[in-house]
C-alpha cells in the first residue's frame, strides 16, 4: 500500500518539476483526441441524419392511378406483396390516397392556399420501402421502374450518397490530423519522460546502487506518462461533451438537421478515448524509458 502511494507521489512530484513540458504534452494529447472524437461524432451525426431524414424511407414507389390509368387496387397490393418478398427490403408499406392527403395537410398546414387546390383524388398512392442496406437503393429502383403498376420511383439515395461522401472526406482529414497529432503527442510524452529521467539521473543511479529493481524505477515514469495521456484525453472528452451539449441545444431551432448523439455512442467512445489516452501516454513513456534504463 505504501508502495503505491510512493509511486504515485513520485509521478506527481516529477510532473511538478517539469510543469511546462508536461502541459505541452497534455495539450498535444488533448488536441489530437479532440480532433479524433469530433470526427467520430460528426460521422455519427451524418449517419444518423441521413437515415432519419427520410424517416427510414429509402425508396418511394409512386403508383399509377386507378381512375386515370386503370390500375386496380389489387394490382397495387400485388406489387406490395411482391416487394415485401424481396430480401433487400426490410419493410414496404402502402400509403393510400387518403393517407397521402392527410400527410399533405400536415405538411402545408401553414399554407391554406396550397390545401385548397388539392383533394385526395389527385394525390397518388405510393409504396414506401425501407431497405436493409441503403446501398441497394439503385438496384431496387431499376427493378421497380419496369413494373406496369409503377409510375415513378424516387429515392433520396443520391443526396445521401453525397452527404456520405462529404462526411467521409471530413472524416479522413480528421483521422489523418488526429494520427499526426497523436504521434506527436506520444513523442512529446516520451520527451518529457526523458527530461524527467535526466533530471533525476543521480537519484536513479543511487536507486540502482542500493538495489532497486528496474520496475521500481520505471513505474513512476510509466505512471507519469499515463497520467499525462489520460489528462489530455480527459480534457478532450470534456471538450466534446460541452460541444455536444451545445449542439443539442440548437437542435429545435433548425429542425432540419438532428444534432442528437446517442448517449450509448458518446459514453462508449468516452471510455475508449480515456483508455486510448492512457495507452498513448504509456507508449510515450515506454519509448522515453527504453534508451535510459537499459542495463
Amino acid at each position: 500500500m505504501s508502495r503505491i502511494t510512493y509511486l504515485l507521489r513520485e509521478a506527481f512530484i516529477n510532473m511538478g518539476r517539469n510543469a511546462l513540458v508536461v502541459v505541452g504534452a497534455i495539450l498535444a494529447v488533448f488536441v489530437s483526441l479532440t480532433l479524433a472524437f469530433s470526427a467520430l461524432v460528426l460521422n455519427e451525426l451524418v449517419k444518423s441524419n441521413t437515415l432519419q431524414w427520410q424517416d427510414g424511407v429509402h425508396v418511394i414507389v409512386w403508383l399509377k392511378d386507378e381512375v386515370r390509368d386503370g390500375v386496380t387496387f389489387e394490382a397495387q397490393m400485388g406489387l406490395l406483396d411482391q416487394v415485401n418478398e424481396w430480401e433487400e427490403v426490410e419493410t414496404a408499406t402502402f400509403v393510400g390516397k387518403a393517407e397521402a392527403y392527410q400527410e399533405f395537410q400536415e405538411m402545408f398546414a401553414s399554407n391554406p392556399a396550397m390545401l385548397e387546390n388539392v383533394n385526395p383524388a389527385i394525390l397518388p398512392a405510393s409504396i414506401r420501402i425501407k431497405l436493409n442496406d441503403i446501398e441497394q437503393y439503385r438496384a431496387i429502383q431499376l427493378r421497380l421502374i419496369d413494373q406496369p403498376v409503377v409510375k415513378e420511383v424516387t429515392s433520396p439515395g443520391e443526396s445521401i450518397e453525397q452527404l456520405a461522401d462529404l462526411s467521409n472526406v471530413l472524416n479522413m482529414i480528421g483521422v489523418v490530423l488526429a494520427i499526426v497529432q497523436g504521434a506527436s503527442a506520444v513523442v512529446l510524452i516520451s520527451n518529457t519522460i526523458r527530461m524527467a529521467i535526466y533530471a533525476r539521473r543521480e537519484e536513479i543511479g543511487i536507486m540502482k546502487l542500493v538495489g532497486a529493481s528496474n520496475w521500481f524505477i520505471r513505474v513512476p515514469f510509466l505512471l507519469e506518462g499515463m497520467l499525462q495521456g489520460f489528462g489530455g484525453a480527459l480534457f478532450a472528452v470534456v471538450m466534446v461533451f460541452f460541444a455536444r451539449t451545445r449542439l443539442e441545444s440548437i437542435d429545435d431551432t433548425i429542425g432540419l438537421f438532428d444534432f442528437q448523439v446517442a448517449d450509448s455512442f458518446f459514453w462508449r467512445w468516452t471510455i475508449l478515448f480515456l483508455l486510448f489516452g492512457a495507452l498513448a501516454g504509456f507508449l510515450g513513456s515506454a519509448l522515453g524509458l527504453r534508451r535510459y534504463l537499459r542495463e
Binding site: 543521480e202 540502482k208 542500493v210 538495489g211 529493481s213
Partner: peptide, 22 residues
C-alpha cells in the same frame, strides 16, 4: 541475468568518494 542484478546489489553496501547523497 540483468533482472537479478538488483538482488545482487542488495547484498552489497557501497560507499563512494563523492558520497552520492540526495
Amino acid at each position: 541475468p540483468s533482472w537479478k542484478v538488483p538482488f545482487l546489489r542488495r547484498s552489497i553496501g557501497t560507499v563512494f568518494q563523492d558520497f552520492k547523497l540526495l
